[in-house]
Amino acid sequence: MRETITTNATVNTARKVTKVKLTKGKTLDVTFEEIVTIIEIVEGEEVSKTISGDYTRIGKNIVHEDMENALLLLRSHLSILCDQAEAQGKGYYDLEEDEEALSKYKVSSYSIGGHDIHEGVTLRGVRFGKSGAPLNLNSPFTKWEGGDNEEVYENSFELRGLINHCSEEALLYVEGKMAPTAQLDMFEQAESDEHDTEDGPF
């Protein structure tokens, strides 16, 4: 039997994306940390409790084009960080204007790791050669900020902003934003350590 209990507790929930993968079928796998903060008054004093967990949502529905477009914005960074030919002799903003060069790239996933000043991201995707054959690319782990005597990626500010944008779209997908023709058939859920989605960039 379910019993409803009324309390004076305030519950706040926050989610932080740590991994996103666009699949071959254009569905999205999203791993995130969920932090639930419960604040209640006990004997006149405020008491706070925090509960956290890591979750992976395996999407069944095709992503909205906004999610695809967000990942497209990472192509320049993938090219630069993987030291590809198209990035040689060009600045980030120059490369952003070269759609012919960027059309050779696709970013399919990213993983965020580290904490505080050591937080950063790894991008994964492909570069399509002249024959159309894809070359798998994995960028080095790139911090948003550098510590003492560490070289900082000169476009880390732009990269961080775009990753935040992608993560916002990923959480909207988890909450139901998908392609207009997709069925509202939400998610299979698994603990992050029980589902390995690293089977290549697609």
Score class of each variant (00 low, 15 high):
Ser139Asp: 02
Ile62Trp: 11
His165Ser: 01
Pro134Leu: 03
Glu46Asn: 09
Val47Thr: 13
Leu95Glu: 00
Gly53Asn: 13
Pro140Ile: 14
Glu33Asp: 15
Leu171Ser: 05
Glu145Ile: 07
Ile117Arg: 05
Val107Tyr: 02
Glu45Leu: 01
Ser131Met: 04
Gly89Tyr: 09
Ile58Thr: 03
Cys82Leu: 10
Tyr92Ser: 03
Leu95Phe: 06
Gly147Val: 12
Gln84Met: 11
Val63Gln: 06
Ile38Val: 15
Tyr110Phe: 15
Glu43Gln: 14
Val126His: 15
Leu71Glu: 02
Leu135Phe: 10
Gly132Ser: 15
Ala101Asp: 03
Glu65Asp: 13
Glu46Ser: 04
Tyr93Asp: 06
Ile35Gln: 08
Ala101Trp: 02
Val152Asn: 15
Gly113Asp: 11
Leu162Gln: 14
Ser108Gly: 14
His165Ile: 00
Leu137Cys: 10
Ser52Leu: 06
Arg160His: 09
Leu123Tyr: 13
Cys166Glu: 05
Ser156Pro: 08
Arg124Gln: 14
Leu137Gln: 13
Arg160Asp: 07
Glu150Arg: 15
Ala170Arg: 05
Asn138Phe: 05
Asn138Thr: 15
Gly125Gln: 12
Ala85Arg: 15
Lys104Cys: 03
Leu123Asn: 12
His115Asn: 13
Phe32Lys: 05
Gly146Lys: 13
Phe141Leu: 06
Glu154His: 11
Glu86Gly: 02
Tyr92Asn: 04
Leu123Trp: 11
Leu162Trp: 04
Val121Asp: 00
Leu162Pro: 08
Arg57Cys: 05
Glu119Gly: 01
Glu99Asp: 02
Phe128Arg: 05
Tyr173Gly: 04
Gln88Leu: 00
Glu151Asp: 10
Ser156Trp: 04
Ile35His: 06
Gly89Asn: 07
Asn149Gly: 02
Leu102Gln: 02
Leu74Met: 12
Glu40Gln: 13
Asp83Leu: 11
Ala101Ser: 01
Glu175Tyr: 09
Gly53Thr: 12
Glu150Met: 14
Ser52Met: 10
Val107Gln: 03
Ala170Phe: 07
Asn149Lys: 06
Asn138Pro: 11
Phe128Leu: 06
Gly113Gln: 12
Glu168Trp: 05
Asp54Arg: 12
Glu99Cys: 00
Val121Ser: 01
Glu43Ile: 06
Asp66His: 08
Val174Tyr: 09
Glu169Asp: 07
Glu97Gly: 01
Ile62His: 10
Tyr110Pro: 13
Glu151Ala: 10
Ala101Arg: 03
Glu33Tyr: 14
His118Lys: 15
Gly89Cys: 06
Met67Glu: 06
Ile38Cys: 08
Tyr153Cys: 09
Ile62Leu: 05
Glu169Met: 06
His115Cys: 04
Ala170Ile: 03
Glu99Trp: 03
Ser108Thr: 14
Ile35Met: 06
Gly89Asp: 05
Lys106Gln: 12
Asn149Trp: 08
Lys60Ile: 03
Tyr55Thr: 10
Glu119Leu: 01
Arg124Cys: 11
Ile163Cys: 01
